[in-house]
Nucleic acid binder design. Structure first.
Lengths: 203, 203
DNA sequence: TCAAAAAATGAATACCCATTCACTTAACGA
DNA sequence: TCGTTAAGTGAATGGGTATTCATTTTTTGA
């Protein structure tokens, strides 16, 4: 005979799953991500290591969940902010500024989304790469539109978009790892200028 | 009593060290970066695994040696090429083109310098690899000079140099991982244009 | 040539973690 | 209430690999 879960149990399990994800987020986001082991995550979530495997098939699935969640949050903020503007240039600029703001507020997100984690496993790096591809593609769509509107000269928008994202990634990584530039928000303005000129913005 | 090594033994040991480095280089630059184990390196170098530790204190020291060697070679080529030009713009452009040429010829070097080494190193410290810092600094020096000569507008050359390197890094990584752009040499021209505009080159 | 010293060897060790599983505790429903 | 089923537990397992060390081989210098 099969027993049905009561609502109470369903709620408890749902809460537990959330606590696991939250614990993982906290650990992945910590400065020293030395022991992002299942044991450590389980401990922080207040469960036994074995229990973890009742909620996730393996570590990879957990990482994917965490990364996707963070990415979704970031994209949500970007979309909201973009809707406040009409011109594609403004939308593009708003996207960058939101990213920087989020990364300043939650360095851990920046670290997790922009860095690649060999500690985890090569397979996971593909997940991060996909996100980066996604970001680049978003920029490319904006650039295509700008090109159509004749607001930037004819160019390989795919390469330009990659370059564009590359400038941000490199500067943010430097900020994360070296603490330079000290003021990332100020640097953002420089970067916007750099990229607008780079794109050949006709003003 | 202490025995002195004869020249013959010194030579043999020196050669052995070189063979270890060579073997490591071959393995590190292979397509499948999976088994870069000491065992595999020792086997390729024709020595026992224990012997490795008579020549290097640990794996980290070996990786550092290999990376430094590759970097030195790359820098040598860049310096030689730069000496053929007078204008800083031309020197800058020549540097980029040499980098791209080397990376096309030896993908393994690109993979190790741009992707794997930062990953490996991350485990030991969170610092940017010295190499990347070095590259950025080289560009910054060029930019400072250009700025002094009034050939580019006033700007934070540190951030511009970081952005500059970031565009290349991102595009080369995409090329390595996604196979896009297909023609990296062509993309290099686009990137040069992007960055020259980004810097605000006065022409 | 030979005993001491150094170099070389590779199986054994040590370590780290993800994952499993025999067992305990809690929930279900007749 | 009680037998059955599901959830939870954490010590044990397994796999991978960097590093060590007891032993063997080679080199040195008298």
């Amino acid at each position: 005979m099969v027993y049905n879960k009561t609502q109470k149990v369903k709620d408890k399990m749902e809460g537990r799953r959330e606590r696991i994800v939250k614990a993982a987020r906290e650990i992945f986001t910590e400065d020293s991500f030395q022991n992002m082991s299942i044991k450590a995550i389980a401990k922080k979530a207040g469960i036994a290591t074995g229990t973890f495997y009742l909620y996730f098939t393996n570590k990879e699935a957990l990482v994917e969940t965490v990364v996707k969640e963070m990415y979704k949050e970031l994209m949500g903020l970007i979309k909201t902010e973009r809707s406040n503007y009409e011109s594609v240039f403004d939308k593009l600029q708003a996207s960058m500024e939101v990213c920087i703001k989020v990364f300043i507020r939650e360095k851990g997100i920046a670290r997790l989304l922009l860095k690649h984690f060999p500690e985890i496993n090569m397979a996971f790096n593909n997940k991060f790469t996909e996100i980066e591809k996604d970001l680049i593609n978003l920029v490319r769509i904006d650039l295509d539109e700008l090109q159509e509107q004749g607001l930037i000269p004819l160019q390989n928008t795919s390469i330009s978009a990659t370059a564009f994202v590359g400038t941000f990634r490199q500067v943010i990584l430097s900020w994360l790892q070296e603490g330079q530039p000290e003021n990332l928000e100020e640097a953002c303005q420089t970067l916007i200028q750099y990229n607008m000129r780079g794109l050949g913005k006709i003003s």
